[in-house]
Each structure stands twice: as structure tokens, then as C-alpha cells.
Nucleic acid binder design. Structure first.
Lengths: 120, 120
DNA sequence: GCATAGTACCTTGCATCACAAAGTACCTGT
DNA sequence: ACAGGTACTTTGTGATGCAAGGTACTATGC
């Protein structure tokens, strides 16, 4: 295992959360999402995004409609369903808890290297 | 897919980072790690932890030694190798970047719901 | 018309990994 | 011996990120 692989692992699941967030703002299609994620320095490729969108759709959290484009093939514009909004809220709570837990672990290591074992 | 599954996905890869952090403080064995992770509200079970430790060992980031216990079977006490320390630093940088990227996505959604589209 | 390029969406196959469940081995107390 | 607790291991399953290749539609150039 190398650092690139580890980075990929660390991002798993969080992608889903970020994509739901982006769709929560309004109708978007896949290329919009890729642009937004890229600008937030979260690299995603089509082979990851499309199956993920299909899964979220099949779970009932997304819906989409075909929209004709003036320059190219039609696009799938996605929106969040009401169930999807509930799910997104739950994911956000999970994210904050996780970030806090990781911060706890990091803080303890910092205290340890400053003071020696903080445990009595 | 349900919220439990999504939470599991979100934690993937981050577990590895947290475990390396815990081992970085000094020699510990598996039950120590489980206690520490549980107290940080990161639930892990043996079936996850042991294979992960084996992977990290095989990657050269951990080493261990058998230590006799005064009450029970001998224990494997793990320590970070020099390579492991370098890897942990890289993982930590990745974590902070990822947390920042996610925060960026969340912030944009908040701005959107306050002001409408922030894009000109 | 026809070919080329660009855009958008989809599918296949592979490797990785968390987890549940069952198993192995060691030590202590009775 | 035997039961109970502790510690480490293994097997099988399901989920999923991703690379690579494919399909389909539109516009442009000739």
C-alpha cells in the first residue's frame, strides 16, 4: 500500500456526502459536479461519479430529468428528493462527529508528545 | 443503501490514520487501540482491526514484538517504524486537506441557501 | 451528405477493504 | 480436567473506487 492508495481510501464515503451537498443547491448534471469537486480539490473521475449517482438514485435520494442541451447530447439534471434531504442531514451530522473524533485522536497525540503520557 | 452503511463508508481509510496515530505514542496492543478508538466514539471490531494491523505491518510501517502477559496469552505490542512516521505525517496532511475541502463544499451550500446562487 | 471532434452518459472487470462469524491458542481458577 | 476469559487469526461476503473502453447525440468543416 502507498500514500496514493491511502488517500483514495480516506476519501471513500465522503464523496457521496459532497455530491449530495452539491445537488442540494439545485439542479445540476454530472459535469457541473465534477467542476465543483475539482475546484474544492476533491478529484473524481467519471467512472466513480456515474455509478455513484445511479446508486443514490436507486436508493431514492435523487431524482433526475432529461434536459436538451443547445450544444451536445441531452443531460441528466439531478435533484434531491425529500428523503434525500433527510439523508443528507444525517450524513452531515456523521461528518461532524467523525471530524471531531479524529481531532480528538490527533489532540491526544499532541498532548502525549508534549507531556508524556497524559493518562494517570 | 442506508445511513449505517454510509457511515461505514465515510470512516474507511480514516481508521488507518487514527490507528497509526495511536501507535505513534508508544507501544500498544490491539485491545489498547480498541479502547482508545471507542473512547473517541470510533467503533471498531476485531475483524476490522487485526487484518488492518497485518496490512500496515506488511507495508513496513509497523513492527511488533511479543510480550508475555501476567494474565492471559502473550500480546503483540506494535510500534511505528521510521517509514511509518513519514507515512503518518503524509496521512495527516491528507486528512487536513480533505477536511478543508469538505468544509469548502459545506460552506458553499450554506452561502447558497442564504443568498441564492453565489456564482455571477 | 459524410467525417471528425466534442460532449455526455454507461458498462465491464479488477483490486481493495470493513465486517461478521467462526476458529485457534494461551492462561487462570476451581 | 474443565470452564471462562483474553488475544490473535482466518474465511467468506458485499460494497465500492477506479481505469479503460464503449455508446450515442450534436455541431462543424468540407
Amino acid at each position: 500500500m502507498n500514500i496514493e492508495n491511502a488517500q483514495v481510501q480516506m476519501r471513500k464515503g465522503i464523496l457521496e456526502f459532497c455530491i449530495l451537498h452539491i445537488i442540494s443547491r439545485g439542479e445540476v448534471y454530472a459535469s457541473d459536479m465534477l467542476d465543483e469537486l475539482t475546484s474544492a480539490r476533491i478529484m473524481v473521475v467519471e467512472g466513480t461519479l456515474y455509478p455513484l449517482l445511479t446508486r443514490l438514485k436507486n436508493s431514492g435520494w435523487l431524482d433526475y430529468k432529461w434536459v436538451e442541451s443547445s450544444s451536445g447530447p441531452p443531460r441528466k439534471y439531478y435533484v434531491l428528493t425529500d428523503e434525500g434531504k433527510v439523508f443528507l442531514d444525517a450524513m452531515q451530522a456523521t461528518w461532524f462527529e467523525l471530524a471531531d473524533s479524529v481531532q480528538t485522536v490527533i489532540r491526544r497525540s499532541e498532548e502525549f508528545s508534549k507531556n508524556g503520557s497524559p493518562n494517570p
